[in-house]
Amino acid sequence: MPHDHDEPHSLLPSDPALRVKALETLLTRKGLIDPAAVDEIIDTYENRIGPRNGARVVARAWSDPAFHAALMADATAVVAEMGFYGRQGEHMMAVENTAQQHNMVVCTLCSCYPWPLLGIPPGWYKSDAYRARVVREPRRVLADFGVELPPETSVRVWDSTAEMRYLVIPRRPEGSEGMDEEALMALVSRDSMIGTGLARRP
């Protein structure tokens, strides 16, 4: 049954979507970019890279002392060996939470983030509210995320750059003794590796 009065034409994309298409078309016609490579990057970040990569690093650091020592000494090399390396050649540093110090990560400049380990950052990480407040009042930001630390635990905020990205190693939760790497991974949330959360209790 004809019903072409319902949808007279294709759904018009938004103005920015049309501008991105225009850039892609122009650069492709000039032979400057390979559209298949662009699609491959989208697929990688939508489907293959995410916080499970970082969770694997954390779970292994919790269970393997030699791995832990190597990770703290040179995270870039250790995670590259696991197949997680920065496409932009950035360095990685692991910062470990202890009873004395809790670590949080921000990028006050823009939104630098350990993509190979955590994927694309959540919206709040890119918001002005988080980027400005976490430096000024980290404990209040933590409270907004439902995290309360003992008063004797200090908070250190690490400001990412294009060259250096940080991965927080959360404290291993009580009750996780004897769990294997796969089981431990399920306790490691994305937020716990940014420092706005804690590892889940089993």
């Binding site: 994309p13 938004s14 920015p16 979507a17 991105v20 298409k21 850039l23 892609e24 650069l27 970019i33 390979d34 490579a37 662009v38 699609d39 990057i41 989208i42 970040y45 939508e46 995410g50 496409r87 932009q88 994927g119 694309i120 919206g123």
Partner: peptide, 16 residues
């Protein structure tokens, strides 16, 4: 990972 397709496209274009 991305709220809208064009977010993914402009991100990937820049990375490329």
């Amino acid at each position: 990972a991305f709220e809208a397709l064009w977010h993914a496209q402009v991100f990937a274009l820049t990375v490329h």
